[in-house]
Design a protein around this nucleic acid. Sequence first.
DNA 1: CGATCCACCTGTCGGC
DNA 2: TGCCGACAGGTGGATC
Length: 297
Amino acid sequence: MPELPEVETVRRGLQPFMEGATILAVEQRRPNLRFPFPDRFAERLTGRRIEALERRAKYLILHLDDGLGVISHLGMSGSYRIEQGEAAQAPGNFTHERSKNALHDHVVLRLGGKDGQTSSIIYNDPRRFGFMLFAEPGQLNTHPLLKGLGTEPTGNRLDGALLARLFHNKAAPLKAALLDQRLIAGLGNIYVCEALWRAELSPLRPARSITGPDGASTENTERLATLIRSVIADAIAAGGSSLKDYRQADGELGYFQHSFSVYDREGAPCPRTGCNGTVSRIVQSGRSTFYCPVCQH
DNA sequence: CGATCCACCTGTCGGC
DNA sequence: TGCCGACAGGTGGATC
């Protein structure tokens, strides 16, 4: 269930195991996910040291000691889990009571940490919309999947003035504009719905209608920018709090159980104090939008 | 060019 | 119970 906050939560969970670790072995169990694995995938990873694990938008990027970049995207259903100890010693041994979920374990990385501990990092992805690709040394910034990405909604670069510039002359509905990764990178269906609800803005409204003439900042762009940042920050903070038990009994990386104001709450009363509206579900660009038609204008 | 749709997959859930 | 359709957190690529 990965939007930016979930991917950041995964990154924080993997980082202590990955950074500084050496890749001892790689098991690639099928030829492709959404895309074919790169040629010599396992071979080029084996023996390398992982220098850093970075997140950009919804992508995870491993930086290896020979300059190779590994770009990992979780798609709709991808997840990583960490196994330590005996269970991790036998990748491929899933014949006994290992759940049928193991059917979708597509990649296993055996790591030797700087502390001498070994671990297995397992990528699972039932729908296989995720992928792993290489960026050759020095090519990360020009990689086709990364070069067009817009501004991160973390930090302070996303403000009302930037949003106004991005949306100036955009006829597309706010919902579609906020999902456009070339404008803001990392927002997905859930947090777009939640941010628009917080900002009391209708997802149907043309993006350009909240900017001033000539793309000037307005109260609306200021408020929306602020609330996008806060919803993402809140979600990351909540995901982070679930990190303490990232390794559950089954070894699954647990996602924070979000409680949403509108997402997936069709028919529920609008939670805004003083609003007597009901959460609606409509379809925009083929995807569900949840919003309150009473207080979002 | 920009804006819109579809395709890619498997799993789950609700209705009959 | 079983079957069937709708739907799911994303995005590259085809098409207009």
